[in-house]
C-alpha cells in the first residue's frame, strides 16, 4: 500500500485527475460502468434483483470462479494457458470432501490439503511447459484427460454427502456477506498488489510480453513460469475448497465447461491472450459482471434457454468495445 501513496503523492493535481480518467477508461472502468448500468436497468425493471439476498448470491457464486480466474490471469499474462483448471477443481474438491468425512479428521486438514496438492499439480504442468518446452495448451489438455479419467477411475463418480457442518466454510457468513466473498476480495487485492509492485510479479508481465528481453534483463523465464503455474495451482486449490464447501453434496466428477468460464472471466477482464497485459482486478470484475448478467436475465424474464446466447453476445460486445477503445487510444498517441 505504501507504494501507491508514494506515487500518488508525487503527482500534481492534474496528473491525479488524468490517472482517474485513465482508470475509468481502462478495462476495469469499462467493466465497472457496465456493471453499474446493468444494476440500474435490471434493478429498475425488477427491484427484487437488488434484494440483499440476491446480491449476496451473485457475489457468492462469483467467488470460486473469480479466485480461479486470478490464477488463470497470471497464467495468460505469462503467455500461456491452462485448460486443466476445471478438472483440477473437480479433483481437489473431491479430495477435500472425502477427507472431511473421514471420522476424526480435523476439518482444517480437508481445507489445507487442496492448497498443497494444487501447487503440486501446477508444478508438474509448469515443469513440462518451462523446462521441457511443451506448449501449455498441449500439456494442460493432456493433464485435463489424466485428471478427469483418474478421478472417475478412483472414485467411480460417487456423490459425497454428510460433510460435517463445520466443514462448510462457504456457507458461513461474516458481517452479512458469505465468507467466500472476503476470500475473493482479499485474494484479488493481494494478487493485484503482488503482480503490480513486486519484482517477482512484474517478471510475469516481462516474460509474457517479451521472453528474450526478459531473459536479457536477468529474469529467468523458466523460474517465472514454474512460479506462475504453482501460483495458479494454489488459487485453484483455494477455489476448489470454496466450491466444495458451498454445496451440501459434492459429485466426484469434473464440472463440465468450468475451465471455459474461468478463461472467459480472465479474457473479458482484459487479460490479453497474447500475454503481457491485463490485471486480476479486471478478471474479478468480469466474473461478477458475467454472473450478474446471468442472474439479472432471470429477473427480466429472459427464457433460460436463451441465457447462454445472450451471455455469448455480451462477451463479444465487451471485447469489441475494448478493441475499439484501444484502437482509439493508439490513434490518439500517434496523432
Amino acid at each position: 500500500m505504501t507504494a501507491t501513496t508514494v506515487s500518488a503523492a508525487r503527482q500534481s493535481a492534474p496528473g491525479w485527475f488524468k490517472n482517474l480518467r485513465m482508470l475509468v477508461s481502462g478495462q476495469e472502468g469499462a467493466l465497472t460502468l457496465s456493471l453499474a448500468l446493468l444494476v440500474i436497468v435490471v434493478g429498475t425493471a425488477n427491484p427484487r434483483f437488488l434484494a440483499q439476498q440476491n446480491i449476496s448470491d451473485i457475489l457468492l457464486n462469483s467467488s470460486y470462479i473469480a479466485v480461479a480466474a486470478i490464477g488463470m490471469s497470471a497464467v495468460i499474462i505469462s503467455g500461456n494457458i491452462d485448460i486443466s483448471v476445471g478438472a483440477m477443481i473437480g479433483v481437489l474438491a473431491t479430495i477435500s470432501g472425502q477427507l472431511s468425512i473421514v471420522p476424526g479428521m480435523p476439518v482444517w486438514i480437508s481445507w489445507l490439503v487442496p492448497l498443497i496438492v494444487g501447487p503440486m499439480i501446477g508444478a508438474v504442468t509448469g515443469f513440462l511447459v518451462a523446462y521441457l518446452r511443451i506448449p501449455a495448451i498441449v500439456v494442460s489438455l493432456g493433464m485435463m484427460s489424466i485428471l478427469k479419467g483418474g478421478l472417475i477411475l478412483a472414485t467411480g463418480g460417487v456423490w459425497i454427502y454428510n460433510m460435517p457442518p463445520e466443514y462448510k466454510l462457504a456457507q458461513q457468513s461474516f458481517l452479512g456477506l458469505p465468507v467466500p466473498v472476503y476470500f475473493m476480495l482479499a485474494l484479488t487485492i493481494l494478487a493485484a498488489l503482488w503482480m503490480r509492485y513486486s519484482p517477482s510479479g512484474r517478471a510475469i508481465y516481462a516474460v509474457g510480453g517479451n521472453k528474450e528481453a526478459a531473459l536479457l534483463s536477468g529474469i529467468s523465464p523458466r523460474v517465472v513460469l514454474m512460479r506462475v503455474f504453482m501460483f495458479n495451482g494454489l488459487m485453484v486449490g483455494i477455489s476448489s475448497v470454496l466450491f466444495a464447501t458451498q454445496f451440501s453434496s459434492i459429485q466426484s466428477t469434473v464440472p463440465s465447461g468450468l475451465e471455459l468460464t474461468i478463461i472467459t472471466s480472465a479474457v473479458v477482464g482484459g487479460v490479453s491472450i497474447l500475454g503481457g497485459t491485463g490485471t486480476v482486478i479486471g478478471a474479478t470484475l468480469a466474473t461478477i459482471l458475467l454472473r450478474a448478467i446471468g442472474n439479472g436475465m432471470i429477473f427480466i424474464n429472459v427464457s433460460a434457454y436463451w441465457l447462454q446466447a445472450v451471455q455469448g453476445t455480451l462477451i463479444l460486445v465487451t471485447v469489441l468495445i475494448d478493441l475499439l477503445r484501444r484502437r482509439r487510444q493508439a490513434a490518439q498517441i500517434r496523432g
Partner: peptide, 21 residues
C-alpha cells in the same frame, strides 16, 4: 481484429446458446 481465441470463445457460448434457444 478480434484475436481468434477470444472470438471463438465468445461464439462457443453464442452458437451453443442459439442451439439451446
Amino acid at each position: 481484429g478480434v484475436p481468434p481465441l477470444i472470438m471463438t470463445l465468445a461464439t462457443l457460448a453464442l452458437y451453443r446458446g442459439m442451439a439451446l434457444g
